[in-house]
């Protein structure tokens, strides 16, 4: 491709990628930070049994049980990133497949799939997540299943709309007129467009997934203690919010920074019209 489209803002892409890389490094290096599960009853708690503040040994202090907060944070980030990647791939794959099938074959398949998508879009996420959580054992799989089950419908609608748009522009008919089989039309004419659309959508999807994983774990419906997750760390830390707010702030900031980084990557991939406002008729 020759030249960047006008109005593209690459600094967001750079900043987002840099933050994500830092978090990925933290997640990979998590074992170096120590054990996220073993309480240090001698140096991890004050004589009165309270968590200790930041020190050289424990850069973020310890949690209420005397466990290394930094190690827990690193493992929590690991969970967040795993969930972001896995549920992102799964929900987009399912959504894109549904949208492609509905848009390409039309007819009854379209009706059934798109009504199902409508239902998916109308579900109250948190409540639905809690209900699904109630029928599954706690853990990473549960979180990924819940997020995938709730997140596929939006990409499905996006892809469906895109396929219909391409149809209107004659991509499908042109392909078929040239003697290509249905599968070849999908592969050669629809898939590239759909792929670029989904690539643009995936950072936003990942951002939502990170935030939703934290929410589920906070509500006891995702990763359950003692396994660390940013969400349940915040939930645990809440008990100490008056005297050791760091236990809420540190994982809270981590969730925000992760989500923000994904959103920045998404923004950086967008283009926008810098001239929109110059057309205004009001006040000079």
């Amino acid at each position: 491709m020759a030249g960047r489209p006008a109005g593209r803002r690459p600094w967001q892409l750079l900043a987002g990628t840099a933050v994500l890389a830092a978090f990925a490094a933290l997640a990979v290096a998590a074992p170096l930070a120590g054990s996220p599960l073993r309480p240090d009853l001698t140096r991890g708690l004050t004589p009165t049994g309270l968590p200790v503040g930041p020190s050289a040994r424990y850069p973020l202090g310890t949690d209420l049980l005397g466990r290394d907060e930094l190690a827990r944070l690193a493992y929590g980030v690991r969970v967040s990133l795993t969930v972001a990647i896995a549920s992102n791939i799964a929900s987009i794959a399912i959504g894109a497949a549904v949208g492609l099938v509905a848009g390409f074959f039309r007819g009854p398949a379209e009706q059934v799939l798109m009504r199902l998508t409508d239902v998916g879009l109308a579900l109250p996420y948190t409540l639905a997540g809690l209900v699904i959580a109630a029928i599954m054992p706690a853990g990473l799989t549960r979180v990924i299943v819940i997020i995938t089950a709730l997140f596929w419908s939006y990409p499905a609608r996006l892809v469906y709309g895109e396929v219909l748009r391409l149809r209107r522009r004659g991509f499908v008919e042109a392909g078929e007129a040239m003697g290509a089989s249905g599968l070849a039309v999908v592969r050669r004419h629809l898939l590239p467009q759909v792929t670029s659309l989904m690539l643009a959508y995936s950072p936003l999807n990942a951002a939502s997934a990170v935030a939703f994983e934290a929410t589920l774990s906070y509500l006891n419906a995702g990763i359950n203690p003692p396994a660390p997750s940013l969400g349940n760390m915040i939930s645990d830390g809440q008990a100490a919010i008056t005297y050791r707010p760091l236990l809420v702030i540190a994982p809270g900031l981590a969730v925000m920074a992760l989500t923000l980084a994904f959103l920045l990557v998404g923004e950086g991939m967008k283009t926008r019209d810098p001239d929109a406002r110059r057309l205004s008729w009001l006040g000079r």
């Binding site: 934290a214 915040i234 809440q238 919010i241 809270g252 989500t259 923000l260 959103l263």
Partner: peptide
């Protein structure tokens, strides 16, 4: 907007609680 989109509901709630409440 971007920051508000990024922050999960419960984190924002806790931050407000921490700042304005405690």
């Amino acid at each position: 907007n971007l920051v508000l989109l990024a922050v999960p509901v419960f984190v924002l709630g806790l931050v407000l609680l921490l700042v304005f409440g405690y």
